[in-house]
Simulated assay, not measured.
Amino acid sequence: MTPTLSQRFRDYLEERRIHRNRLVTKDGHCNIEFGNVRYSNHFAYLLDLWTTILEFRWSVVLSLFTASFLFSWFIFGLIWFWIARDNGDLWWQNPPVDHNPCVISVVGLTTAFLFSFTSQMTIGYSIRVITPVCPGAIIVLVIQTLIATLVKSFWCGVVIAKMALPKKRAKTINFSKMAVICPRNDALCLQIRVANLRKSLLVGSQIYGKLLRTTVTPEGDTIIMDQISIDFMVDAGKDNLFFICPLTLYHEIDKTSPFFEMAVNTLQQQEFELVVFLDGTDEYTNFSCQVRTSYIPGEIMWGYEFLPIISHSKEGTYSVDFSEFSKVMPVTTPHCADCFNNEKAHYYDPRDGTDNPVFEASEIPNQEEQTSVNFRTVRKKS
């Protein structure tokens, strides 16, 4: 059934609320603001001008780029106008026929600006040419040329550095939209899929996670955004990943894991944010980059596993089907980590609901492009 306009509007508001409340967005941006920063600390941004400009958006950089050239042209235009005025070169000063100007054809503010622009952008002159009559004008021309070289070099470096920022490389690293919890290697694991869309490797890749949640200490202190380390690994380990094809990262839910106390019916009631980090160095540019994403309880599916997406053809080539990248399928999974070692729960079929009489299975259509199985707690009638 096609959703109504009001339903789509409510979904849109819900997505906005989730986006606003999470610390790290799905594309890795940090949703945080700094308030009540002392004005004296703002001077530190000017001292580190290079980093400050690189952090600006392209629109701001291009605006500053344009403004810097226009400002320098105008300032030196005023200086050339003052030199011409001091020498009596301006038209309203009625210079005599045998008058020797400092700059030929600079007779007003407009022509002074044009000469400033021409001097700063090129050494080829047309009808406006400096003469050896005014030594001060020659000194100004040398100063303007040096400043113009510095301005061009600075903005050339900014544009190249901004185009080569490591975060651009992070755009070609994709995480699955959903995380899943299911058995793997005789353990209950939280799994995430990640893919490198380029054939160039990330050398020395490392994967790790942080669980952010509000906790209360035994002393009664409330810690907002308390960070708990989450170890992820692949079958070959967690360091120096061979990241040439999509990998399934998994975190084993044992007694040391913060997910150990959660169950299928309590997971969605939790308030936490799982931030996943992938660090690596691009083998072509030798730039280090970090890719981030986050998962909230509504983006973790219990009792599902990722569909296989890598195949091997008869010709000996490997193929990756990215259309199945984030798709999952139901799999037999215990309803909690504590009962995973229970033999009866270990072979629990979520579609039959035979493990625990207070759980039953219900079909939920069209959830993230698949038909999935959802669990809910019910009261047995006496």
Rank of each mutant, 00 (worst) to 15 (best):
Leu212Ile: 09
Arg198Leu: 13
Glu219Asp: 01
Ile230His: 01
Cys189Glu: 09
Leu201Pro: 00
Ile228Trp: 03
Gly209Trp: 03
Val216Trp: 06
Leu211Phe: 00
Gly204Glu: 14
Arg193Ser: 14
Leu211Thr: 07
Val203Ala: 12
Lys238Ile: 11
Ile192Ser: 05
Val203Gly: 05
Gly237Tyr: 00
Val194Glu: 07
Pro218Ile: 03
Ala236Asn: 13
Leu188Asp: 13
Val216Phe: 06
Leu197Trp: 14
Gly220Asn: 05
Thr215Gly: 02
Ala195Ser: 15
Val234Ala: 12
Arg193Met: 07
Met233Glu: 15
Gly209Val: 06
Ile228Lys: 01
Gln227Tyr: 00
Val203Arg: 13
Lys238Leu: 12
Val216His: 12
Ile192Leu: 10
Lys199His: 14
Gln191His: 06
Gln191Leu: 03
Asp226Ala: 05
Leu197Pro: 02
Asn196Met: 02
Val234Glu: 04
Arg198Phe: 04
Gln227Gly: 03
Thr222Glu: 08
Gly237Ser: 08
Lys238Val: 10
Ile192Met: 03
Val203Ile: 13
Gly204Arg: 08
Phe232Trp: 02
Met225Tyr: 03
Val216Pro: 11
Cys189Gly: 14
Thr215Arg: 03
Gly220Pro: 08
Leu197Asn: 13
Ile224Trp: 00
Ser205Met: 08
Asn196Gln: 08
Lys199Trp: 05
Gly237Leu: 00
Val194Trp: 06
Gln227Phe: 02
Gly204His: 10
Leu212Cys: 12
Asp226Thr: 01
Phe232Ser: 09
Leu190Phe: 00
Cys189His: 11
Asp235Met: 13
Ala236Arg: 13
Thr214Phe: 01
Leu202Val: 04
Thr222His: 02
Val234Thr: 15
Thr222Phe: 00
Ile207His: 04
Glu219Pro: 00
Val194Cys: 11
Leu188Gly: 13
Arg213Ile: 12
Ile207Asp: 07
Gly220Gln: 04
Leu188Val: 06
Cys189Val: 11
Ile230Tyr: 02
Val216Lys: 13
Leu188Tyr: 08
Arg213Gly: 07
Ile207Tyr: 05
Glu219His: 00
Leu197Gln: 14
Leu211Pro: 01
Phe232Pro: 02
Gly204Gln: 12
Gly209Ile: 01
Leu201Val: 09
Leu188Lys: 05
Arg213Thr: 15
Thr217Met: 08
Arg198Trp: 11
Leu188Arg: 05
Arg213Glu: 15
Gly220Cys: 10
Cys189Arg: 14
Phe232Met: 07
Arg213Trp: 13
Thr222Cys: 03
Ile207Lys: 07
Lys238Tyr: 11
Val194Phe: 02
Pro218Asn: 10
Asn196Trp: 09
Tyr208Phe: 15
Ser205His: 04
Gly204Trp: 06
Gly204Asn: 13
Gly220Glu: 04
Asp221Ala: 10
Thr217His: 14
Lys238Phe: 11
Ile207Asn: 02
Asn196Ile: 04
Leu211Gly: 10
Asp221Trp: 00
Ala236Gln: 14
Ile223Val: 00
Lys199Cys: 05
Ser200Val: 06
Leu201Asn: 09
Gly209Asn: 11
Ile224Lys: 08
Asp235Gly: 06
Leu212Ala: 01
Ile207Trp: 05
Leu190Asp: 05
